[in-house]
Design a protein around this nucleic acid. Structure first.
Length: 587
DNA sequence: GCCGTTTTCGGCCCGACTGTTTTCAGTCG
């Protein structure tokens, strides 16, 4: 069973409890939903964790759920879950995917109209709605019926299934919206918050916060956005619109005096906010997006500034990238948060594909080494490493490959002479073949300072074989960096499995680095593995994998991943001076 | 059902918006 399937099953148990008796099972419902969310977000397979008896690694999975999940992995079913769900008609579950339908409404519809087939229930409901039968139901009306019809329509169109946006795309969209909003005279300040501010690898909705003394004018202006398909909802202080492409944009407005509270609230994450509010409760306070109230008092203390809000709770300000409730609040209370790496700490990039005619096995870069060096100087880098793909094996003899790399070495020495302001490092991105050997011979590798190694073919190997392959490839003395270590492509493919414990232990003892590939569709290592790597004492590099000069600006996204993985400057090789780098790479 | 720098028992975030109500339930973030 996959993680999404398991998460879905837990959600169904929570739904069943809600229908049975929401008040009685209130906290079980929360617990099941929380565990479901955690499993959805987990990058390790629950089936693996169950086999390794390590389910407690998932936050929100306690003794009971550990036992149930073990049973699920072993037997494919859980007696307790079946008991809970035995009186719940299975046809309600597909309806929960339709926005505006929750457990209560879905149950009433399924019960009243006697829907029994989960496969056809959405079509069945549509038919009933078209026959004008929902409007007659108590608690429903003409409007609900129309809403349900539209929701089914949009669901069938895949509006809710649109893949999550990669960061640059979401940023651009948010910029267009903030530009639009800034043209309103009523808008004092506007920021994009939510997962975009936390720099998550993919973004679902765009969340915007506006400081204004005139909320209704701002909301009118917002809902008249020229590219809005329709207004989803609109109240006194917030509104949502649907834009073309099926994206939701949510906007909240607060007066400037309370804007800090709104920034905090709307940045999230949900888990971080809940923990913060629980912390406030323990101090006899109540926290919301409006400010902080003393318990049983009406008066609310507003915060214009986010930092002051955190301080009122006895916390240092927490960088948005780590607001995920994974220990940041505890450390902030002791003022012990690490100082996260910043873009300005970066002194170079090791993964640059130039247009040097090396006749590579994979795609070649578009711009010359000179153009890319000039860009590196603009970025204030101290050094730049060229890492074209190795010459294709199938099209060359070994002798030809050695000759190509010889010529490249000469050329790099030549441009080094002409570019005294920056150090040029001669690297390569060498394929690790299925048998673990590197794609080119030791004679050819001799022409390099060091090499990145990576997997580009035969991705379907199992975890054990792939780990063996990667470890063998990295064992070569010239191999220093494992590039895009998981091989995932965001929204395209999940990447292969590796035994990370083994990889980390190897990197640490052999002084090899893992790459954080900054390319927005890679962001590989993923943030959670970055954090585990650092905790295991592994050093990392952040590279852009640029195939043209414009790509070199993508470094910021790699830094975001590093920050989300709690990396400090010390954890990242390419924050260090050239002499240190050179010594490491050529050791 | 989970969890612990006031707790292994006794807590568990807070509010907006909508539609169908005439004071609120359901859904969502």
């Amino acid at each position: 069973m996959t993680n999404p399937e398991i998460a879905r099953l837990l959600r169904h148990v929570a739904t069943s409890y809600t229908i049975m008796n929401e008040a009685k099972y209130r906290f079980q419902i929360i617990a099941y939903q929380k565990a479901s969310d955690a499993i959805d977000q987990s990058i390790t397979e629950i089936t693996d964790l169950a086999t390794e008896d390590n389910l407690s690694a998932i936050p929100g999975v306690g003794p009971s759920l550990q036992a149930y999940l073990s049973e699920l992995v072993k037997n494919g079913k859980v007696r307790h879950f079946e008991e809970v769900m035995k009186d719940i008609p299975p046809a309600i579950f597909p309806l929960l995917d339709i926005p505006s339908l929750g457990p209560k409404k879905a149950f009433r519809l399924v019960n009243h109209f006697n829907f029994t087939n989960p496969r056809t229930v959405i079509a069945d409901l549509k038919k009933i709605a078209l026959e004008n039968k929902i409007a007659l139901l108590e608690g429903f009306g003409e409007k609900s019926q129309q809403d349900i019809l539209r929701a089914i329509e949009e669901f069938s169109d895949g509006v809710n299934k649109v893949s999550r946006m990669v960061l640059p795309f979401a940023s651009e969209l948010a910029d267009r919206l903030t530009d639009y909003l800034q043209k309103s005279p009523y808008v004092e300040e506007v920021y994009a918050l939510g997962s975009l501010r936390r720099k998550k690898e993919t973004i679902g909705d765009i969340d915007l916060a506006v400081a204004s003394a005139h909320p209704s004018e701002v909301l009118d202006y917002f809902t008249s956005y020229p590219y809005a398909k329709r207004t989803i909802e609109k109240g006194d202080v917030s509104a949502s619109i649907l834009i073309s492409g099926g994206k939701h944009i949510d906007l909240m407005v607060q007066p400037a005096a309370a804007f800090g509270s709104l920034l905090q609230h709307f940045t999230g994450s949900k888990e971080h906010n809940i923990h913060l509010r629980e912390l406030a409760l323990k101090k006899g306070l109540s926290l919301s997006e409006y400010g902080i109230k003393e318990k049983r008092q009406e008066k609310i203390k507003q915060y214009a500034d986010e930092k002051a809000l955190y301080q009122s709770l006895g916390l240092s300000w927490i960088p948005p990238e780590i607001r995920e409730d994974t220990g940041e609040i505890e450390l902030a209370s002791k003022n012990e948060l690490p100082r996260l790496i910043e873009l300005s700490d970066i002194k170079g990039d090791f993964h640059i594909h130039s247009s040097f005619p090396i006749e590579p096995s994979h795609d070649m870069g578009k711009d010359s080494m000179e153009i890319m060096l000039n860009k590196a100087k603009e970025l204030g880098y101290h050094y730049l490493g060229f890492s074209e793909h190795n010459p294709s094996q199938s099209k060359h003899t070994e002798k030809q490959i050695v000759s190509l790399l010889g010529k490249r070495k000469e050329f790099i020495e030549h441009i080094s002479e002409n570019n005294k302001g920056i150090r040029v490092i001669s690297l390569l991105e060498t394929d690790i073949m299925p048998n673990g050997n590197l794609a080119i011979s030791d004679n050819a590798l001799e022409y390099l300072d060091a090499t990145l190694v990576s997997i580009h073919s035969v991705l379907g190997m199992n975890k054990l074989e792939m780990t063996k392959r990667v470890l063998k490839g990295m064992s070569h003395p010239k191999a220093k960096i494992l590039s895009h270590p998981t091989g995932r492509l965001i929204n395209e493919r999940p990447g292969y499995e590796l035994d990370w414990k083994e990889i980390f232990a190897f990197c640490r003892s052999e002084n090899k680095a893992l790459e954080i590939n900054a390319f927005p569709t890679r962001l590989d290592l993923p943030d959670t593995l970055v954090r585990e790597a650092i905790n295991s004492g592994v050093k990392l590099v952040i590279d852009t994998d640029s195939h043209q000069v414009a790509n070199m600006d993508l470094m910021q996204y790699g830094v975001s991943v590093a920050r989300r993985g709690w990396a400090t400057k010390d954890d990242i090789w390419n924050t260090k001076e050239y002499d240190i780098i050179n010594k490491w790479l050529t050791s």
